[in-house]
């Protein structure tokens, strides 16, 4: 494989002289999605900011990123020029697909951006607060239909966590999974379901237009652009962020890892990256190194627990 040959060549080159690394970034998704966009934005900014001379993006789609992750973990060990984009969705997909490869098989570097999950209803709905919605669920969980993204994904997990936090049996939630591309949004706007759950960015334009009301957001702090309360301040112990990250190959030496970390740190603090985040409407939730690893470990544990509770993981 070209990349392996190149990688080897550059490993030799960088051992003798310290000059801008050439990276290959794997987007474990098809062109057009969020991970692909992240990888391609990284590509542009890394080259423009002089962090790397040449960056290639490689798409390996499949199964919530786990196909790409497995290929990445198997083929890149010790090669510091290889990076992979990932996200919270991967945490869930690894569990629900019973993937033999997990995030422990790569070297997580940093969380780059993230988004709150928002719970919303159409403007015409009688439900005014998140408490109204939870009361309705307590009375008859089946009567509250939720439209959201794929089964076992971040939206589903958030509803499960909310139910659990409110003392409702998470297996009783009536979660209706819609395929991506905003089908769920159409179902909410068309009054087909009781409530909807999705990335806050998808709802905000509808809120501005007055066709939808956000009841709560899932992060620990309020989200810019909406005055909706967090689930935590409404009394439910739920904190979810749908983040995207960058990870490096497994089996790196401490020096190699530090070098990648330094490059990513330069990137995350560069003007080019900040302006790219702004154009794409991505929030800066940068968290790197040991802090990120600790946070990741906590989330994997919580996600495993809730997916078992919902019944998606045995």
């Amino acid at each position: 494989m070209k990349h392996a040959i190149l990688g080897a060549a550059f490993a030799v080159a960088t051992a003798t002289a310290a000059f801008a690394e050439n990276y290959v970034i794997m987007a474990p998704a098809a062109p057009g999605g969020g991970w692909d966009a992240t990888a391609r934005t990284l590509q542009e900014v890394m080259v423009a900011e002089g962090i790397s001379g040449n960056v290639q993006v490689q798409n390996v789609p499949g199964a919530g990123g786990t196909v790409g992750l497995a290929q990445f973990a198997a083929s890149t060990s010790g090669d510091a020029t290889q990076l992979i984009v990932g996200g919270y969705v991967m945490v869930g997909a690894i569990l629900t697909n019973a993937s033999p490869v997990s995030l422990a098989d790569v070297t997580p570097i940093a969380r780059l951006t993230g988004e709150a999950v928002a719970i919303a209803v159409p403007t015409a709905s009688e439900l005014q607060t998140i408490n109204d919605l939870v009361e309705m669920m307590k009375a008859d969980p089946g009567a509250v239909s939720w439209a959201g993204g794929s089964a076992g994904g971040v939206d589903h997990i958030t509803v499960g966590l909310l139910a659990k936090a409110a003392g409702i049996d998470p297996t009783k939630i009536n979660y209706v999974a819609f395929s991506g591309g905003g089908e769920a949004l159409a179902a909410i706007l068309g009054n087909q379901v009781t409530a909807g759950i999705s990335g806050v960015g998808e709802f905000l334009p509808q809120v501005e237009a007055g066709s939808m009301r956000i009841l709560a957001v899932s992060t620990d702090t309020r989200w810019p652009g909406t005055d909706a309360p967090t689930l935590m301040e409404s009394g439910y112990d739920v904190n979810v962020q749908n983040w995207r990250m960058i990870a490096a190959a497994p089996g790196l030496s401490d020096e190699q890892k530090a070098a990648v970390l330094a490059d990513i740190d330069t990137l995350a603090k560069s003007a080019g990256w900040k302006s790219a985040l702004e154009t794409k409407n991505w929030a800066d939730t940068y968290l790197a190194g040991a802090d990120f690893e600790a946070q990741l470990a906590k989330e994997i544990e919580a996600t495993t627990a809730i997916l078992k509770d919902i019944g998606l993981v045995q």
Binding site: M1, K2, H3, I5, L6, Q56, V57, Q58, N59
Partner: peptide, 9 residues
């Protein structure tokens, strides 16, 4: 991204 070999490199 197409797989490259010696020739392409």
């Amino acid at each position: 991204n197409l797989p490259g070999g010696l020739l392409e490199t």
